[in-house]
Amino acid sequence: MKGMLKVLSLAIIGGYVFSLLHIPIPWMLGPIFSIITAQFLYKGTLSWSPRLQDIGIVILGIAIGEQFNLSLFKNAGILLLYMVLLNSILIASSIALAFVLSKWSKLSLKSMILGTIPGGLGQILLFAEEEKDVDLAAITYFQIMRLLLVVVVIPFIVSGHIVSKSAINIPMSFNLILLFLLSWGCAYVAKRFKMPIAYFLAPIILIIGLQLASFDLAPVPPLVMNGAQLLIGAHIGLILKPHMIKLPFRYLVAGILSSVGLIIITCGTSFIVSYTLDYSFATSFLSTAPGGLDQMVLLADAINADLSVVSVFQLFRLLFIFLFVMPVLRYYYLFTAKKRAFELEQDIMTKS
């Protein structure tokens, strides 16, 4: 509990300072910066419950559900085509980038691919843990570095495209508390049934369903959204541990280069989306950026980008990676392992 209170204090200080400096999404970036800094200077215990991050994600899901534009699905066929195309470009570019960096850093290609593919941090690491011949520490570092650089760099790239949101003083209401409890319960049940990204997706589906049923829903106050930023930012800030920088120097540099490379690639693909689908640059970039779904949507909300478009594109990327790319990689790795075992057996038989 003491460790969590320390993290909460650091997160509040960081968020407050960043808000005074008018930095984009201050209540997420501020906690990330202050907590990462503290971990390298403070030797005591710092801790944060994953459940607190889940609370922030549920709040975010409610806000998205309330603002979701169902007319987006009128062009579902065109959107699907673009999402498949853009994600195919992203995955192909990730593998090409991994191949080049693997040659330079001397890290195995398999480990580099798993470190470079822009999937969810937890799911990629679970996949990597099941593989026996990968460098799990390097993969963890690569994925965390990607997440941190995307979250820190992209707000400044799109900050010039901010459309100011009108300041609305929305009071906290009992109805919103009930809505949160209902959303949390639905997310918990969905999680038990193995729904992907349950704490994010279940509230969105619930809120859209309630709106279609003509329920009058309480809006999420800006103060509560700031709290969601803080809860998510504190979790991200604790991910990078000081011991992770003890990896070989080439691994450390390759992790930064892979993240920067992915940002450049998605910056290019965002122009395709912006030009062909007539979305703003901010909406297009956040839709294709290789960051976490919750962070990109929080930033979209902060700069008044199209939440529906960003949510759909980011969600599709995660599902595309875990329902298609990861199974293909698993099959490929099993096939190559069996092939190597067969060739070794044949070689032994030939020599005998």
Rank of each mutant, 00 (worst) to 15 (best):
A302F: 08
S108G: 13
Y331V: 15
L72S: 08
I78T: 11
I263W: 02
I124Q: 04
I205Q: 10
I197C: 09
A218D: 14
I157R: 08
M1T: 09
L125A: 11
K351D: 09
S352E: 14
N304Y: 05
Y16P: 07
S352K: 09
I57L: 07
A137D: 15
I91S: 04
K339C: 10
L307T: 05
V220H: 14
L97K: 08
A282I: 02
F249S: 05
D133I: 01
R330D: 15
P155M: 01
L298P: 15
M1K: 14
P327Y: 03
L72W: 06
C267D: 11
I239S: 14
L334W: 03
S280V: 03
F174N: 03
G115H: 01
S311E: 06
V163H: 12
R317F: 02
S93G: 06
Y82S: 10
V310L: 10
S270Y: 03
G65N: 07
G209R: 15
F33K: 03
G115Y: 02
K165G: 06
I139T: 09
I64D: 11
A341S: 13
A302T: 08
L70P: 14
F285V: 03
F99P: 05
C186L: 11
L126T: 15
Q123D: 12
I272T: 08
F249W: 10
T336G: 06
G77F: 12
D135Y: 00
L79C: 10
S94Y: 06
G237R: 12
